[in-house]
Nucleic acid binder design. Structure first.
Length: 235
DNA sequence: TGTAACATCCAGTTTACATCA
DNA sequence: TCTGATGTAAACTGGATGTTA
């Protein structure tokens, strides 16, 4: 393989290797055969490698190196493909999350408005009934009795008022706490868990600008690569 | 059982060449 | 036509790991 000339520099020796074959790059036919073989086997046994090299008029080492480089190139390409798929999945989830968040905000504000309206009506009713007895417009005796009982309850034990009052007094973090209180009554632990999953996406991950600084989730990729060898993608 | 020699793989690098502005 | 920048394929290098005597 190497020239025997002791005065030949490494560079010249390397160049002479190429000149011996009178070709720097493999021919289209050689590449085609190598590609076809790579599709069926990404690693060749030494015996098969020698045979293929003979068929193509190459050195076995050249075939070995070509397979090594091919595996490296293919792996890079595959990583790009996987990355694009993951990015697309992420973008879909992020937009889904955003629309759900908007819908949720709309429902919460609607609930606030309804509570305020109800409060106003109750205040009006109290005001007009002061000293005039109970007005039972549109309600049965039984219903008015229930209403009377509710009014006699202390405010803090009425659940719908609890939601509203807390929403008025919570700080910035109160938004998520309200959601938990309103929709996950009795399931606070599950709510905390869900919020922890969702909250990070609210900060950096929902912005596509942050993709440049995105540290790849090695678990995701590791998981995929540990379940099956990367070269199984051919199937 | 420990170990040296060897083979193979991979990641990273070098080299030579083609292409293009 | 010349030239420098850039991309790519072939080949090399060095470290890690597995096998064998």
């Amino acid at each position: 393989m190497m020239s025997a000339d002791p005065f030949m520099t490494m560079k010249k020796m390397k160049k002479s290797i190429h000149n011996e074959n009178n070709q720097r790059r493999f021919s289209d036919e050689q590449i085609k055969s190598l590609e076809m073989r790579f599709k069926s086997e990404t690693r060749l046994e030494p015996r098969k490698m020698v045979q293929l090299a003979r068929e193509l008029g190459l050195q076995p080492r050249q075939v070995a190196i070509w397979f090594q480089n091919k595996r490296a190139r293919w792996k890079t390409k595959q990583l790009e493909t996987e990355f694009n798929i993951l990015r697309q999945n992420y973008n879909d989830l992020a937009s889904q999350f955003e629309s759900l968040k908007k819908e949720n905000q709309g429902l919460v504000s609607e609930l606030h408005i309804l509570n305020e309206e109800r409060q106003t009506k109750q205040d009006e009713r109290r005001h007009c009934c002061d000293g005039q007895g109970v007005v039972t417009l549109g309600s049965t005796d039984h219903e008015s009795e229930k209403e009377e009982n509710r009014r006699s309850e202390p405010e803090e034990v009425r659940p719908e008022m609890e939601v509203y009052e807390k929403s008025r007094h919570d700080d910035d973090d109160g938004y998520n706490n309200n959601i938990k209180r309103e929709y996950f009554v009795g399931f606070e632990e599950e709510a905390d868990h869900l919020m922890n999953i969702v909250e990070p996406a609210d900060s950096c991950l929902t912005s596509s600008d942050d993709w440049g600084g995105f540290k790849s989730n090695t678990n995701l990729l590791d998981q995929s690569s540990s379940n099956y060898p990367w070269w199984d993608f051919w199937s």
